[in-house]
Design a protein around this nucleic acid. Structure first.
Lengths: 115, 115
DNA sequence: GTAACTACCTCGGAATCCGATATATACTCA
DNA sequence: TGAGTATATATCGGATTCCGAGGTAGTTAC
């Protein structure tokens, strides 16, 4: 189950791109990889992951290809595209700005002093 | 316009608590303070902020008190409660874990190597 | 007299979320 | 043989959340 919930979903596209950037992978594998890399802090259900994958493929940020295995169910392996790589860079920049903003506020860096 | 959108909303309760922890403030002021501290990277509309304030007050995490000014509209000033302080600590912990997880994935720290 | 700013609040359509469900193969253990 | 578990994909739709828009009102400044 894991889940730190509360946040997460909005970050999914970027996380998926980051995972398939380091290695082409199928949906199920991407889900597991996110759990592993986050030490189970992050976890997405199938009802969340597969639609996100579809959207990314439609947007041309990842490309899927079916692999029929001699043993086991067929899988659709996704690889990142050039469009996706550019988008991933954008995600990283947005995340950097966002997370530093949240940090600044949570740690109470004061910028005003007016009562 | 600011807004880095995409994320944000889920973090609002924690951000509000952090702001009123450093100084009791009214809704409008809280909104401005978040913008200032985030250098305009974060911005919440009133349709988002006021409901969030209500929910926090209902949960006993902040306490509001009306101040009628001799000049200008009345304002409802919120201060953090003990419950809110405890909750804020929790928000900070969750955020720390979450953001480090996202960082780990976005920067591609590999934990598996299986193809 | 009107524009802009401070300050509060609510409505409700739109968008998003994800648990539940369905299908299918393969392996293990009793 | 059957149950349970794991791999693997995919969709549905009710519930929840989101926030732009709209409304009230006092103040300040052309």
């Amino acid at each position: 189950m894991s889940k730190s919930a509360e946040q997460s979903r909005s970050q999914l596209p970027g996380l998926i791109l980051a995972v398939v950037e380091s290695q082409p992978l199928h949906g199920y594998g991407i889900a597991r990889e996110i759990e592993v890399r986050s030490a189970d802090a992050l976890s997405f259900g199938e009802g969340t992951l597969y639609p996100a994958l579809k959207a990314l493929e439609l947007a041309g940020e990842i490309a899927g290809e079916w692999y029929v295995q001699e043993s086991g169910p067929a899988k659709k392996v996704y690889r990142i595209t050039d469009v996706g790589r550019a988008q991933l860079a954008r995600h990283r920049a947005v995340w950097a700005e966002y997370s530093s903003s949240v940090n600044r506020i949570l740690t109470g860096t004061p910028q005003t002093q007016t009562a």
